[in-house]
Design a protein around this nucleic acid. Structure first.
Lengths: 109, 109
DNA sequence: CCGCGATAATATGTGGTACATATTAAGTAT
DNA sequence: ATACTTAATATGTACCACATATTATCGCGG
């Protein structure tokens, strides 16, 4: 797939919120989830700044959890504000998505 | 609808390409088309830079056409490269869209 | 009736700001 | 060495505010 960079703006944060809405997680694992979800080229350097942002905005709580396979993990848990942000993301996504589908349809009209 | 700014990155250029794929048009009219398509807050200051970009990238040809209702219009016509760019946009959009839908689904799994 | 000025609608363009992401590199703990 | 995290820099896009220009129209006085 060609370069998706611009289309991912705003989307990756929504993805991270959605992943966290399923249950707590940590950076490295979130990167793996995204890669597995078809966003193969998304790397640590992209995801960690997003997590910092979520924390700054007060959408998550964090805790250090020791790991047997490496350094302690910084585990992120979505709070109520985070859940609201996730819902808001999907509302906006659905809106843009629907408008775009209409625009595309007019092609054939 | 809340602020869509980030979600529109990359999308608006795709919209303009799609509108031009239906037939030639000019800045002011394109803004109206977008407003009518549900992107109400998109204004001239957003669209004109996009048109400049399309021209710079060689995706359109332009011509001045006098108007009875105002200053002459700069009419944009999509060329072959432009049509390819439009197709490419929709491929990328469909990809992101599908991946996102999957991610959302896993919620309920 | 005709010309003059004011106004509204149309139309294009530019500079600056803010923000998200990519890239690269480096730091830290086991 | 490996797993995990953070930081610094660069780039691209949307948006706002503003500037400029052209045409139609309307009101009013001569």
């Amino acid at each position: 797939m060609e370069d998706l960079t611009e289309l991912l703006k705003g989307v990756l944060e929504g993805c991270v919120l959605t992943i966290l809405a399923r249950g707590e997680s940590y950076g490295y694992q979130i990167v793996r989830s995204l890669n597995g979800a078809g966003f193969e080229s998304v790397s640590e350097g992209t995801v960690y700044p997003i997590l910092v942002r979520l924390e700054t905005k007060g959408l998550v709580t964090t805790s250090r959890v020791p790991s047997t396979t490496g350094p302690p993990r910084k585990v992120y848990t979505l709070n109520e504000a985070g859940r609201t942000a996730s819902d808001s993301f999907w509302q906006r996504w659905d809106y843009v998505s629907a408008r775009l589908a209409e625009l595309r349809e007019e092609d054939s009209v």
